[in-house]
């Protein structure tokens, strides 16, 4: 029986030629948590997931999935883990029902159980109408949903999802999110999710780790990471820069940090929400009325900027399969 935990200690993976895809990475995911592994293309996310799911061997370090060592107990890891890789592995000549049934049977179901299970999953991922068509005719979203269903056939203890929503439209993305949450809450699945979308990590993950150039740059709960950046800010917009400067002058003693950017004043402070009435009062006394007032909490994007020194670009138009990772090693042919 697996303990549903993931433990990674000093994991490294380098390729001949000196490219280090994963560099001394350590983290752990407690049972029943959603772990968001965040980073740009080529940061080492896919390599890590391949090591954890037994498709690749680490160069050094150690990892256990569900209490099983990914190198010496690979068979046990495969038994309890469900995996949907970024490169969707489907046979275009088969039908979804056939593929799901085969998957079930390989995991030890008898024929009838496998068919019932396949039927359930086809309804779950809304492929009922396409069940008689070969997978080659499916759209990108349908293929991704079928791939998720394949990963769920044996109801894994730990589910690995490698960029599950990359290239999906917002509605399909929401569907996947909802399903991930449901699997986590109702079945207690531990979920390891890689993503290049900050919003996705923020929305789903209990713990976030940011990886950049193969190294772990930060980890913690999204809120903790954001809080580590310090203060929230009150943003006041005025008619023009002159008014903004005047306003800043009136309230400068209320805060440690204040910033004027054209017509906007940003007032950084702890517990900014509670401070709003007094700030507004002070301004009204000086007859300065902002045309808008917003409260900003630091985002994961700010966290990312802080720890990596660059913004995480969400380039949805970029063909994910072509970019980054040591050239030639990402393709399926030479793994």
């Amino acid at each position: 029986m697996s303990d549903r935990e993931i433990k990674v200690e000093n994991l490294s993976k380098s390729y001949p030629g000196g490219v280090t895809a994963v560099n001394d990475v350590s983290f752990s995911v407690p049972a029943g948590q959603i772990f968001g592994f965040l980073g740009p293309n080529g940061a080492g996310k896919s390599t890590t997931i391949k090591i954890l799911t037994t498709l690749a061997l680490p160069t050094s370090g150690r990892a256990t999935v569900g209490g099983f060592d990914v190198v010496s107990q690979a068979g046990d890891v495969r038994r309890i883990a469900g995996v949907a890789l970024q490169e969707i592995g489907l046979d275009p000549t088969m039908k979804s029902m056939e593929m799901l049934t085969l998957q079930g049977r390989l995991f030890g179901f008898n024929d009838r159980q496998a068919q019932n299970r396949a039927q359930e999953l086809i309804e779950l991922v809304k492929l009922t109408d396409a069940v008689d068509r070969r997978v080659g005719t499916y759209s990108g979203g349908m293929r991704r949903r079928l791939d998720l269903a394949l990963a769920l056939v044996h109801e894994p203890d730990i589910l690995f999802l490698d960029e599950p929503t990359t290239g999906l439209d917002p509605a399909s993305r929401r569907d996947i999110w909802e399903e991930v949450r449901r699997l986590n809450r109702q079945l207690g699945m531990t979920i390891f999710l890689t993503t290049q979308y900050l919003e996705e990590a923020d929305e789903l993950a209990d713990i976030v780790a940011i990886i950049n150039n193969g190294r772990l740059a930060a980890q913690g709960s999204p809120n903790k990471l954001k809080a580590s950046l310090g203060a929230e800010s009150i943003n006041l917009v005025f008619d023009n820069n002159e008014l903004a400067e005047q306003a800043a002058g009136k309230i400068v003693d209320m805060t440690e940090r204040i910033q004027v950017d054209r017509d906007t004043v940003r007032v950084y402070m702890e517990q900014a929400a509670q401070a709003i009435p007094s700030v507004v009062n002070r301004l009204q006394q000086a007859d300065l009325n902002p045309i808008s007032l917003t409260l900003t909490q630091p985002t994961l994007d700010d966290v990312f900027l802080q720890v990596t020194g660059e913004r995480l670009k969400e380039e949805t138009a970029q063909p994910a399969a072509v970019v980054a990772e040591p050239a030639g090693r990402r393709g399926r042919r030479r793994k």
Binding site: R79, I80, G104, R105, L106, F107, G108, F109, Q113, N116, R117, E120, L121, E123, L124, V125, K126, R145, L152, V153, H154, E155, P156, D157, D175, I176, E178, E179, R182, L183, Q186, L187
Partner: peptide, 25 residues
């Protein structure tokens, strides 16, 4: 996506984390 439910359905679902026998594989 969550119209059907993994845990409901006609078969009471038991976790199947074994593998088929070598011959059936």
């Amino acid at each position: 996506m969550a119209t059907a439910d993994l845990t409901s359905g006609t078969i009471s679902y038991q976790r199947k984390q074994t593998s088929a026998s070598w011959l059936s594989q």
